[in-house]
Structure formats: C-alpha cells, structure tokens
C-alpha cells in the first residue's frame, strides 16, 4: 500500500501543493539584480502573500535565486551553496546575464550560460527584470512545481559528471568537498 503507485501520486500532489505555497528563497545577490529583491518582498509587491519568503541559509532554502552575472570566482561559492541545499531545491536564473551573459557577453571572467553549470528551473528575462517580472517568475515556478516538472535537482544528480566537467573547466583550483547524496 505504501509503495502503491496511485497512493504515491496522491502524496505527491499534496506535497507539491505545500511546496508550491511555501517557497523560501535564498537570494544570491552578487549582481546588480539584488536591488530588485527588496521591492519584491516589501509593501509594494509583497511576495509573502504568495508564500514566498526569504531564507537565511542554504540549509533552509528551497529556491536559489541567482540575481545577475556570476564571475568565475563566485561560481565556486554558488556551487557549494547549491549543493548544501536540501532536496527538493530549485534554481531561478534572474536577468539576462544568467541566460546568455547579457551585457557581460564578452567578459573574460564571467560565465555566460548558467544552465551549463547548475540546473536552472525558471529563467526571468530582463535587465533588470522589474518586481512584476520576478513575481511572474515565481508564479511560473509554482506552476512547474504543481505539475511536478521542477525537477532540476534530479537532473543535476543524474548528469553530475557532465555538470562537474563543465564546472571544473572554469574553476582551475578545484578544492571542494565531495558530497554524496
């Protein structure tokens, strides 16, 4: 009964409903995009009414919000932060820089396509995306969670070698602990 496929499906629906309405965000605000997070959270747009709330540490967070460009140096920290997060976890790429490099497309020390290094569930386009766009991104993520399609973490586990190879290509001095899930 416990491993029955149908009962598992019901459990999934309930769990996904809870996950959808309780999104704790770890905003990795290295880029300029971090300036759009306070208006999203405070009185004007009030993301908390959707269950979106800031989390203080990666251990408590559900969503890693990468706001803007990532330099090669911060990439290492982002990978550690992502790997310290607990399943189920999601990544939102915020702004053009995470999609194709944006205005830093020809920079020597920023990464261009975030999806090659971390599994991104939702992209929010714009430079900068306004709080409306951020809320729309969260709504998109909620929709994907409810449908059970936000499985970037599983994808990361399945293709860990490919992601690791990409990550090691840009980070030459790779001194990181090995995590085993």
């Amino acid at each position: 009964m416990m491993n029955d496929k149908n009962s598992q499906k019901i459990v999934d629906i309930i769990q996904n409903w809870a996950r959808k309405h309780s999104i704790w965000v770890l905003a990795y605000g290295t880029g300029c995009g971090a300036i759009e997070i306070p208006p999203t959270m405070t009185s004007r747009y009030d993301a908390e009414r959707l269950g979106v709330r800031g989390a203080a540490t990666p251990r408590q967070a559900d969503v890693l919000l990468i706001t803007g460009y990532l330099t090669v140096k911060t990439m290492k920290r982002v990978i550690r932060v992502y790997e310290q997060m607990q399943d189920p976890k999601y990544v939102i790429g915020f702004g053009s820089c995470t999609i194709n490099g944006g205005m830093y497309y020809d920079s020597y020390n920023t990464i261009k396509v975030l999806d090659k290094y971390l599994p991104v569930d939702v992209y929010i386009n714009g430079c900068m995306p306004r709080p409306e766009a951020v809320l729309s991104g969260f709504a998109q993520l909620q929709k994907r969670i409810a449908e059970g399609r936000a499985n970037g973490a599983q994808q990361y586990k399945d293709n860990l070698e490919w992601y690791r190879a990409n990550q090691k290509k840009i980070i030459p001095n790779w001194i990181m602990p090995d995590y085993n899930w």
């Binding site: 809870a18 309405h21 309780s22 009030d46 009414r49 269950g51 559900d62 607990q86």
Partner: peptide, 24 residues
C-alpha cells in the same frame, strides 16, 4: 507594514513542506 500578508494558515503549509523535505 501595509502589506496583505500570508494567509493565517501559512505556518501549517511551511511546516508540512519542511517535514516533507529530505534532510542530508
């Protein structure tokens, strides 16, 4: 703070979600 705020049962949802998370 002049916000709408989460529903009063938000803590139950948070607790259920936290309980259903994997902990490694």
């Amino acid at each position: 703070q002049n916000r709408k705020g989460p529903p009063f049962y938000q803590n139950f949802i948070d607790a259920f979600k936290l309980g259903s998370k994997k902990s490694a």
